[in-house]
Design a protein around this nucleic acid. Structure first.
Lengths: 210, 210
DNA sequence: GACGGCATCATCCGATCGGATGATCCACGT
DNA sequence: ACGTGGATCATCCGATCGGATGATGCCGTC
């Protein structure tokens, strides 16, 4: 053990959380916190500059979402491992984050020791998932769940959720009613539902609306 | 200043956040952290035991939601002020928490100094709302928001959200299709919408579904 | 005992939706 | 150059929905 400290970058828009993490890791000689970032952009810049072993990243942040930041880090081929530290397991970004290249995914309410263990594992490139997340993942995989909606489909869906009729949607979007219906049938298929009410419900469940 | 330290109780199910807050306030002689709790029950017990000036409370917690804890503190007539510290401003519990007796409502991503200011204000019994929360509140108040649905109406609405047709709902609930439609028109009126899709959306927004 | 709220049911009808089908155009990547 | 996928449009038709209107029975309250 303790050949060399594992270096960290902490990314979170909440000062409280950054302090908590910093304090927690600073107390262990096994870890070294190189810096903190408050949004995705800073995270990418500091990762390139400081070259940490592990990036502890919150997903929901203003000014450059965490998922984009992870994708950018992966694209640049940086060696750092990204450990996503999120608050709720209901995040609709779970899968995208892992697809984007996150090494692990933990809930913030994990016990301290789990955090340390996870960071060590992440530093070695191991994938670490908190139990809640893991179970969500498998259920996702089992239930196809996943086809993403096109931007136009999301737009239509948003109007549907407001009670807009197909004809009205057509007017608002400057397209024909037929096209609106096409988008609807497509998004029904993608969401696995058969009417607009259920589509809205699924959209809220998955965080597409809300 | 500094006649006596403002005593605090920290309630949050996330060790990380508890550490962050504790560290932050411990660094200021103006404050004294009396203890920590990880859920609503502990919060109530420790509040009664330690009699803190201010309780810093997260809303979303396992084993006894924050709102219940606040209501219980109020019911017991404890003198402590509850300052709700939540992560997102999308919480549907905003209003219930304040109704239950919370003195203030802050987002966790507030700057440190705002936090200190808020705690001081709360200790004096002043109401402190973060700007984002405040604006949400006024919009809620302006939009009457409020007629509650009957249990039968909620039942129907839940099935609607699953994509169930009126006829199918009738079968499931052992009532006639006409009755289903009656419930629907009633709940449309109460929610201020004109079709089932919008009803589902509003239901999710208000936390009736989800 | 009258009244209001809730749940129940019925009928009628126009408006809207959802499914099926087939077609054109454009952008993007191979 | 070709294929793929998104966005666009059209037409037809049966199914479903939402509105209007009116009625009955139950229950708790004043």
């Amino acid at each position: 053990m303790a050949e060399r400290a594992i270096t960290l970058l902490i990314v979170d828009d909440h000062p409280v959380v950054r302090d908590g993490l910093r304090g927690m890791f600073a107390a262990h000689p096994e870890f070294e916190v190189l810096g903190e970032a408050a949004d995705g952009q800073q995270a990418v810049e500091l990762s390139a500059l400081l070259d940490p072993d592990v990036v502890l990243m919150d997903l929901r942040m203003p000014g450059g979402g965490g998922v984009d930041a992870i994708a950018e880090l992966t694209r640049r081929g940086l060696r750092c491992k990204v450990l996503v530290l999120t608050t709720y397991d209901t995040d609709s970004d779970t899968l995208p984050a892992i697809e984007a290249g996150a090494t692990g995914y933990l809930l913030k309410d994990a016990p301290r020791d789990d955090l340390f263990t996870a960071v060590r594992a992440a530093a070695e490139g191991k994938t670490v998932l908190s139990p809640a997340i893991a179970s969500r993942l498998v259920s996702r995989v089992r239930a196809p769940g996943g086809e993403p909606l096109s931007s136009r489909e999301r737009e239509v869906l948003g109007l549907v959720a407001k009670g807009t009729s197909n004809r009205e949607i057509a007017v608002v979007l400057f397209i024909s009613e037929a096209t609106v219906k096409t988008h609807l049938t497509h998004l029904y298929a993608k969401l696995g539902v058969k009417d607009r009410a259920a589509a809205v419900a699924v959209a809220y469940e998955r965080g597409i609306l809300g």
